[in-house]
């Protein structure tokens, strides 16, 4: 086979870059089909020279396709390998190519959504946001750079993996590695979610539970302190010795809750939201509702 048709590395890089725009013409009829055809064009140009062949190839790749945009890359790789064989005369028909695409897109979407949307993005997002809230510009930069390094690397290597493994990829992917990644990601995800719920869901109750008048000697008696710096020094020493700053000890509802475990109210709110979601309450309704609750509770001095 002297003049066998092969896709060069440059073609594959071009396909990889175009796969960035996979969802560009997302539509309710065939979903990612336009972007898929657009992605395949460098390969079609290389492999098919006649107008009829090109037309057939374009039509073949305008069929229905939809998966998570990043895990489409291994499917693209496999399809490239199949197209290459077909162009070289192997009996790969349209149904085989469409079958591989459809067969892979479902299970892969099941990996892509939890790993990228529900583990990597919330973690990097929360990390970036926590820096941004303190006015640190590194927040968005870290988020943007890390995310795109992970994404671009993942898309290139899985596309190459798919291209080299050809149609065997579905067998490889059903093996243990994929399961490990999914499970590991959900463990990490749940762990981080637990800490995020604690740190970032802020529910603060203001009502005062008790006001206890402290006995004499348990608080700093400001009137009896010497004037000037000497007085400040004395006050600090008394505070260090455990004396209260105020003659009345105020305990808020929040302090009571926090003494159980900090973040308890936030946890309960999160569990309530999960329950409501399972009851098919729209997230939008819940978001707007929580704003209303915030305003009302603030007005009645509960928060």
């Amino acid at each position: 086979m002297a003049n066998e048709l092969r896709l060069s590395k440059k073609d594959r890089i071009s396909v990889w870059w175009r796969s960035t725009f996979l969802q560009g013409s997302w539509n309710y009829e065939r979903m990612q089909n336009g972007g898929w055809a657009y992605t395949m064009i460098p390969a079609i140009k290389r492999l098919y020279k006649t107008k009829e062949d090109r037309s057939a190839a374009l039509k073949r790749h305008l069929e229905f396709f939809n998966t998570h945009p990043y895990v489409a890359s291994p499917v693209i790789g496999v399809t490239l390998a199949l197209e290459e064989e077909r162009a070289n005369g192997a009996p790969v028909d349209d149904t085989a190519i469409q079958g591989v695409k459809v067969g892979m897109m479902g299970p892969l979407a099941g990996v892509g959504d939890p790993v990228f949307w529900f583990t990597v993005r919330p973690i990097l997002g929360a990390l970036g946001a926590s820096l941004a809230l303190t006015g640190n510009i590194l927040g968005p930069i870290i988020f943007f750079v890390l995310w795109n390094l992970i994404r671009m690397g993942f898309m290139w290597y899985t596309q190459e993996f798919g291209y080299k493994a050809g149609s065997k990829i579905t067998d490889d992917l059903s093996g243990g590695l994929l399961q490990d990644i999914t499970k590991g990601a959900s463990i990490l995800g749940m762990f981080i979610l637990g800490s995020l719920v604690n740190r970032w869901v802020s529910v603060k109750f203001t009502p005062v539970v008790s006001e206890v008048k402290l006995s004499k000697g348990a608080y700093i008696d400001w009137d009896k302190l010497p004037a000037g710096a000497q007085g400040i020094k004395e006050a600090l020493q008394q505070q260090a010795a455990g004396l209260s700053l105020e003659p009345v000890k105020v305990t808020t509802l929040q302090a009571n809750l926090d003494s159980l475990i900090p973040g308890l109210a936030g946890l309960l709110l999160t569990l309530l939201c999960m329950w409501l979601l399972k009851k098919k309450v729209s997230p939008i309704v819940m978001i707007l509702g929580l704003f209303v609750v915030g305003i009302v509770f603030h007005l009645i001095h509960l928060m």
């Binding site: 719920v197 939201c273 915030g294």
Partner: peptide, 20 residues
Amino acid sequence: GLAIGGGMVVAVGYAMVINM
């Protein structure tokens, strides 16, 4: 009030992710 609500709204996003 909106700021207080904003502190709680975060829970909805987490709840969606946890349910998944």
